[in-house]
């Protein structure tokens, strides 16, 4: 069976994400994305934060088939933990190296 293909998105956050807040941020992000994308489609997207770059950017991995829904989900996400926020998809690539170079 062939390895499933993935897409990596470079996402910039409007608000800073400090190192001690990252585990909680990750959990809240997945919860809100589940709300935006829906239970039916979430498993086809399967988002996962791969790494943080600085205090306001991170690399998000998803299945290739769910890439468009993830971009839309991030666009719809305007509130996280009661605070106003925004996420901008800066770049997308098949590898993390191409994304962060």
């Amino acid at each position: 069976m062939m390895r499933p293909k993935h897409r990596y998105l470079l996402v910039e956050s409007l608000n800073e994400i400090h190192e001690n807040e990252r585990p909680m941020f990750e959990f809240r992000l997945y919860k809100e994305l589940l709300h935006c994308i829906g239970e039916i489609a979430y498993h086809k997207v399967n988002p996962k934060i791969m790494k943080f770059i600085g205090n306001d950017r991170f690399v998000l991995k998803c299945e290739l088939g769910g890439y468009e829904q993830l971009v839309l989900g991030l666009t719809f996400l305007k509130r996280l933990d009661g605070k106003e926020t925004a996420f901008y998809t800066i770049n997308a690539s098949g590898t993390i190296r191409a994304l962060t170079s």
Partner: peptide, 14 residues
Amino acid sequence: SKANMCSYMQVIQL
């Protein structure tokens, strides 16, 4: 406001 702005990829998907 800045919070309502989007990247070109997001506008195209919308």
